[in-house]
Computed example of a mutant assay.
Amino acid sequence: MEVRFAEDHIRFLGYDFPGASVYPSGMVAPAGIRDADWKAIRPEVRTVLGETLFIPRERKPDLEAFCHRHGIASVSRPDTWGDLLEPFLDTQIGAAEERATIDRLRKAGFTLREIAGIRRRLAPLMLAYNFDAMVWEWVHLGLFDLLTAAGAPVVAAGLRATVGDPAAFYEWAMAIAERHR
């Protein structure tokens, strides 16, 4: 993924996520950006349509300058996907941590049944991504990781296909990302 900053837009080149408004390449103007988080582990902009677009880490300073120049708010929000994908980390989650995670998800409007359904749907994909592909992430799996897993050649094509139509999957993932507390 490559990103170029111009005076009046951000251009995405080789954006890897089918379904994205900038896939495989495209741009977003300041008027299309709701807010940004250049301090995040994976810097991101959120569009006025509720889409999260990721920026390479090394472009953090450029994103910050672009946002300051155009008056785009800096907003750090909870990562709903980080909580949903927690069971797929390469670590043991204690009972107290799991209760806290479930509480955060319930505050974001998720039912226990919905949480279990999402996790069940994604279990084969995320287990293959984190363990079979030897990513071994033990701290955080979030939206970027989910989208990467859905398209990663290191995950068997048959498992990637279980998510269904890539554009529909992307839209579903973005809608869930918007549900935060």
Rank of each mutant, 00 (worst) to 15 (best):
G50F: 03
T52Y: 02
T52S: 03
L53Y: 03
F54V: 01
I55W: 01
I55D: 03
P56L: 02
L63Y: 07
F66D: 02
F66W: 06
C67V: 06
S74E: 13
S74L: 12
S74R: 13
D79K: 05
D79N: 15
T80P: 01
G82P: 01
G82L: 01
E86M: 13
E98M: 12
D103E: 15
R106C: 07
K107R: 15
G109D: 05
E114H: 08
E114L: 10
I118H: 00
I118L: 14
R119P: 09
R119W: 02
R121E: 15
L122G: 12
L122A: 08
A123H: 13
P124F: 08
M126T: 09
M126C: 09
M126L: 15
M126N: 09
N130T: 01
F131I: 03
F131R: 14
A133Q: 06
W136M: 13
E137T: 05
W138E: 14
V139C: 02
V139Q: 14
V139E: 13
H140Q: 13
H140Y: 09
L143N: 09
F144A: 13
D145I: 03
D145Y: 06
T148R: 15
A149F: 09
A149S: 10
P153T: 11
V155L: 12
V155H: 06
R160W: 10
T162W: 04
G164Q: 06
G164H: 05
G164P: 13
D165S: 08
A168V: 09
E171W: 00
A173Q: 01
M174P: 02
